[in-house]
Simulated scan of single mutants.
Amino acid sequence: MKLGPRVIKTGIAVTLALYICSVLNLESAVFAGIAAIFTIQPSIYRTWKQVWNQAQTNILGAIFAFLGLYFLGNDPFSIGLVIIILISISLKLKMGETISLTVVTVLAIMSAPGNDWLFALNRFIVTFIGMAIALLVNIFVYPPNYKKNYVNKINEIFQDFSILMRTAISDEMTEKSFKEQMEQLENDIFQLEEQFMLFDEEREKMSKINNMDVREIVVFKQMFKSLQHGYMVLEDIDSIYFTSKPTPEENRLFDQHLEYLIKYHELFLLKYDGKIKMDLPSLEDEFLKQTEVFLEKVMKSYLENHKIQMTVIGASVYHYAFQLDRLNTLVEQYMKKSH
């Protein structure tokens, strides 16, 4: 079982929140732990945003809770009525993301025995301690290295993707294994997109703290698009290629060109890592030209055999090659300007 940084940080935040409340002799420390759990997010910016949003809704919730405690008391029906009103107002104010902790705050305050105002206030303070601890832990404990995590994820996905691409035409993998690998690849690409959005959001919102190069962000986005278009090629091959009953010559044509593209995809990623010489003409010249030659052969096969599926796959392969060519251009521009 692999424990990610977020899991570890959540555990640390809960521990610290409970410990600090015990040191300060604050009762109902469990609410601090609950607040810490709700507050921890996958990035520093989102954690700060969560704290800010929760602070607003919690203050609103506390106001309603104290008013309800004063006018209605703390019987179950009164608590339920206040929660219904609060949820309705929170949704109206577009604060739905923080409803859960706000409801916990209302329960914490209104469940004070005998309308004990100091006890209710204590629980409100405890909740804020949990949120503050979560933010500090996310900043100082295992601070996320977005660039390293993203590049590692790209390389991991590419390794799995390249195996599928190299065996797609030869049909060497069992159907069950291929389907499982495709589902995993689809899930990984979806997670990669979320990771990129997180990365880009952090760069935009926290630019004064994390000074990230915008050109590198563009390269990262193109890395994702290249994998995404490669996955589309695999989908097209899986769904329509074999229905055309390809000849051995057609299989060789597609297999060889996909191998060619995978080779250069890997080289372009290695170029970003600084492991490939920048002045190699073979990485720049003839790349799209080779794909154009490939398309001409595909069209010739279509005219001879009337296989429309081949042209669809050929167009898909061309789009993938175009994204790779753009990736190469962006990587070179970034590397030349940053060195």
Results as ranks from 00 to 15, higher is better:
Leu198Ser: 10
Glu175Gly: 09
Phe119Thr: 08
Ile109Gln: 01
Val214Gln: 10
Ile240Asn: 05
Ala321Ile: 02
Thr167Gly: 10
Phe224Thr: 05
Ile83Lys: 10
Ser90Val: 04
Phe71Ala: 08
Tyr260Ala: 08
His339Val: 10
Glu286Ile: 09
Lys275Asn: 12
Asp285Glu: 15
Ser78Pro: 04
Leu267Ala: 08
Ile20Phe: 12
His265Asn: 15
Leu324Asn: 05
Leu24Lys: 03
Lys221Ala: 09
Asn145Ala: 11
Asn25Gly: 11
Ala108Glu: 03
Asp213His: 05
Leu270His: 08
Lys176Thr: 08
Gln309Ile: 03
Pro248Ala: 06
Lys297Gln: 05
Phe161Arg: 03
Leu185Gly: 06
Ala32Val: 04
Lys148Val: 13
Ile262Arg: 10
Asp200Thr: 03
Val141Gln: 06
Tyr264Gln: 07
Ile44Pro: 02
Val298Gly: 00
Leu261Ala: 15
Ala315Gln: 09
Phe220His: 13
Ser170Met: 09
Leu198Pro: 02
Ile79Tyr: 01
Leu86Ala: 13
Val23Gln: 06
Phe158Lys: 13
Ala62Asn: 01
Ile139Glu: 09
Val103Pro: 01
Gln41Met: 11
Arg6Tyr: 02
Pro42Val: 05
Phe71Tyr: 14
Asn210Asp: 11
Phe220Ile: 06
Val7Ser: 10
Met335Pro: 04
Pro76Val: 00
Ile276Ala: 03
Val293Arg: 05
Lys336Glu: 08
Phe71Leu: 14
Asp273Arg: 14
Lys263Ile: 04
Asp188Trp: 04
Ser88Glu: 10
Ile139Trp: 10
Leu227Ile: 05
Arg203Lys: 13
Gln222Arg: 12
Ala32Phe: 12
Val293Thr: 08
Asn25Gln: 12
Asp285Trp: 14
Trp52Asn: 15
Ala134Gly: 07
Leu91Ile: 12
Pro246Arg: 01
Ser207Ala: 08
Asn210Ser: 11
Ile79Gly: 03
Val298Cys: 02
Ser177Met: 15
Phe224Met: 06
Thr167Asp: 11
Ile83Ala: 00
Leu18His: 05
Pro42Ser: 00
Asn115Arg: 14
Ser100Tyr: 10
Asp236Thr: 15
Leu269Trp: 07
Gly61Ala: 00
Val104Ser: 15
Leu121Gly: 12
Pro246Trp: 01
Phe199Trp: 07
Leu261Val: 08
Ala134Leu: 07
Met278Trp: 08
Leu303Trp: 00
Asp285Thr: 14
Glu235Arg: 15
Ala55Ile: 15
Leu91Arg: 13
Leu253Met: 02
Gly4Pro: 03
Ser316Val: 05
Gly96Gln: 03
Val106Asp: 00
Lys179Phe: 11
Leu283Thr: 03
Glu216Phe: 10
Leu327Lys: 01
Tyr260Trp: 07
Phe294Gln: 02
Gly96Leu: 04
Met197Trp: 11
Leu81Met: 15
Lys289Asn: 12
Phe322Val: 14
Gly114Ile: 02
Ala65Lys: 00
Ile217Val: 11
Asn152Ser: 15
Tyr272Ala: 04
Thr247Tyr: 07
Val126Tyr: 07
Gln54Cys: 09
Asp188Asn: 15
Gly314His: 01
His306Trp: 09
Ile63Pro: 01
His229Gln: 14
Pro143Ala: 04
Thr102Glu: 02
Thr15Lys: 07
Leu81Tyr: 05
Ile217Ala: 13
Leu3Glu: 05
Leu261Met: 14
Met278Lys: 11
Thr57Leu: 06
Glu175Gln: 14
Glu193Pro: 07
Asn305Met: 10
Thr15His: 08
Phe254Pro: 01
Ser244Lys: 00
Thr15Phe: 15
Ser282Lys: 14
Met197Glu: 12
Lys225Glu: 10
Gln56Val: 15
